[in-house]
Amino acid sequence: MNNKNVIIIGGGPAGIEAAFNLANNDISVTLFEKESQPGGNVKNWAKLFPDFGDASVVRKELTDKLKHNNIKFLANTKIDNLKWENNNWVAITDKDEKHTADIALLATGFEVFDARRKEELGYGIYDNVITSVDFEEMYKTGKILTTEGKIPERIAFLNCVGSRDEKVGNHYCSRVCCITAVKQAIEFKELVPQAQAYCFYMDMRMAGQFYEELYRKSQEEFGVNYIRGRISEAAVTMDKRIQIKAEDTLSALPMKITVDILVLMVGIESSESTLKLSTDNNIVGPYGFAKSKSLFGKDNYSEKKGLFLAGTCKRPLTLPETIADGRSAAIEIINYLRLLDEELGI
């Protein structure tokens, strides 16, 4: 099998983990990353749920794996085209370079929902409306401040922005935003203990190990307020604070609340590359994610021979799930190549 090679598109957790495991099995791997640094969306995060693990540590662990001799890592390389040609997978980069391999692995990941599409929530219009990604960015600086440099007295988190929303066309749950809101509310309260944190939700989905415990902790130790109601619109006040309209559904009364910062928990959407490459290869599933052959037995397989899938290009996944899926894809590829060799009698 040592004469076999694999191209992996996407240098995020799934792509790196798959590359490393393939490389360990003497398969030469070419890994393409459109950005200058590997790590994908992990780059945007400061701490990780549910244990507040340092994202930069996880990222370093991942990037260290790229030092393997069998891995050729190409940063700043976007794949514009991926196709099956002369019994090979051919990836064509944005610099028109051709790379061929026996196997291609799609690990193109996700992008967060562009909150500007929900104009009524004020993102991109009012300064103090930010997204969960902006929050992480701010948290990395060690301070959560309004754009006027003020320490907020009140912060609100709104779940399901761009997920579970049929108006934007995303019916699905992004799975990570509820727990991220809990995590960020705690982080905020740790930084500004005297401030109030409100979390607006439709359903709190705490389906993961230690999630429920974290939710409980946020209530018990940090006094985070949970309000069951979806924010319909946000407006700005004279002093640049954000006025929110929602219904406190549990008391069946409409409510207005003025906060210093509104954090929109943006959902997971299929990335541009995922959409483009899976559409080109006719493996696009609902909402523009890549479609696996079968959810149970062949989740890393696509309908295309020799084209494998790993990570969030398939659906919203948490980071541990994504890394595990990269590993799983590596095993599937190894098994597939072995079978291929046996068929050819090598």
Partner: peptide, 9 residues
């Protein structure tokens, strides 16, 4: 129009 605040602004 209150749901398209950019128009009002």
């Amino acid at each position: 129009t209150h749901l398209t605040p950019t128009i009002i602004i």
